[in-house]
Amino acid sequence: MAEDSLIDWSKLTWIEPPVMGRQDLRDLKKGIDGSFRDFIRENGEWIENIFEPLKWILIKFEHAMVGMPWPLFLVIVAGLSYLGSRSWKLSLGAVLSFILIGWLDMWEGTMATVAMVSVATFLCIAIGIPIGVWMSRSDRVQGAIVPVLDIMQTIPSFVYLIPVVMLLGIGKAPALIAVMIYAIPPIVRLTNLGIRLVDKETLEAADAFGANKKERLFGVQIPLALPNIFAGVNQTIMMALAMVVIAAMIGAGGLGTPVLRAVNNQYLALGVFNGMAIVAIAIIFDRVSQAYGKRLQKHREGGHGV
């Protein structure tokens, strides 16, 4: 192709992009690394202490789940699936999936993964919904938080694993944080969106009847935003499950660890089995939470739309 082109670009030296001096660049990187290391040296301990309760919750929960007799777990799964979806088929499918998972000897890993995803989702909801509500109340807050969410969703997970591991080392707590960084944006976004989409006239009616801020929020805004908020919960669960393998790299344990082992040693069956177990959990969580979200919108049914 070079001989075909009219201009020999390689002769034009000025067309090279300007580059920082090699020495300067090295100093810059060193400087950043050094100051972060200093920061950790000075603050690492109390930061680690902050996350201590998180680790404690996760480990307790995981122990409880792994230690639980398997029939009890199946009863709980069936019960929750039915409560969420009101569908016998779905509940039966969930129970059969877990029996199959146990039959293929992935019970412990599955329990660890379910525990991790449950705790991560719970914390994302507990943190994400208030942030979403806060965003919905002020355009300035929204303007500040949206770019942060954009970064959290697009930055390659491996990149934020580095500072998390530097701060907290390898283990359950950093893995949980890595999962949450990835999984929290949808719940925040959809809470914000859901509240902003609440019909202005309905809100005006609440005002006209003298509702105060609290009555507005809990009586009108959140109930009417619930379908959207629930779509956010569903997305958060899915994203948390998507992080299982990556989180296993920094000590999450669960179904991700055998997958990593399978990649390193080319164990096809091991990889596929554990991968399919993750998929099965994802489908169960997704269907149940979606069915529940749909039931929340029961009041929208009827011949006369408004």
Partner: peptide
Amino acid sequence: LRDFRRFNASMVFQKFALLPHR
């Protein structure tokens, strides 16, 4: 003002503005 709205003046709206979830 909130008390005024609660006890002294109530309102009916053109597009009804009912609470759809209740």
